[in-house]
Design a protein around this nucleic acid. Sequence first.
DNA 1: CCAGACGTTGTT
DNA 2: GTCTGG
DNA 3: CCAGACGTTGTT
DNA 4: GTCTGG
Length: 306
Amino acid sequence: MCGRFALYYSREQLERVAGTTRWADAKDQEKRYHYQPRYNVAPQQTVPLLRTVSGERVLQPMRWAFPIRGRTFGKGESPPIVINVRAETALEKASFRSALDAGQRAVVIANGFYEWSAADAPGEQQDVGKIKTMTKASRIPYFIYHGVTKRESKDHLAPRNAHDMIDRPLFMAALFVEETEMNRFAIFTVAASDKIQWMHNRMPALLETEDQLQAWLDVEQVPARVAVHRCLQPTEQIVWHPVSNTVSSVKNEGPSLIEPRRDEPGKKPGLDIRSAFARGLKRSPSAQDLQAPETKQMRHTYQANR
DNA sequence: CCAGACGTTGTT
DNA sequence: GTCTGG
DNA sequence: CCAGACGTTGTT
DNA sequence: GTCTGG
């Protein structure tokens, strides 16, 4: 997973969250990069990553596509890349060994990431034989993030909008390769936490504490073996809400992409009649649910805030 | 030394 | 179905 | 991750 | 091509 995320801090907020105002000396392609807030960052695109250079934190634009060795490619064929690295096996993989040994670890700063639900949520397992229950288009995207805590917000039961609920940055463990034009990266993945297992089996490796963040970035002192093991720790500090399928197209951008999904009666995007039936009684939580959390789905969400 | 792999995801 | 592009 | 394409020839 | 496993 983690094939899409949001990083919509202002430049100033980003630098504050990153703990540095220093940007790496720009390579050719990086010079043409100008940071701007994004709600729909997709693979192959460029975002600033946090890394350590000479013991100092710096932000550096990198491209989300980690090249791996592969079969020699014929004309017109593009070289193989990955966007994720399985943390469990990263140390055994030839393609990642040199980057790991060289301490090319970095951190993707994000406000949250998106996951598209697996075909069936729990209790919805359907025996529909050999017929696919859900078309790709009918999968529901969720925005997943560190939420406000009860302590931090008295209004947590009645957030006005998505932005009110999201106040903590997300740090995702990443690995990069040095390239002349622009460095390239992939995001580590781990087993999904129990909370979101029903929607997906994998999730990005999140660095939850300042200690974890620091260890991941301290490539001088912390060997890859240790760092990777530490990022496998389960991460439970997450909440989520469903969002519109608008986010599914990389052409779309803007704050509306993280707003809680609104049910559109008679106009459920991509939900064919079979999968609608398969979904049964379960309905998507509406914006109203957010203000009056009553559904199982939303209890889930607010429980996560404890 | 050579042979064979070289990523991840999801889905069935 | 599978690959490419974003 | 999803959406969208998925091809060649000759000719201008 | 280059790394790992045998």
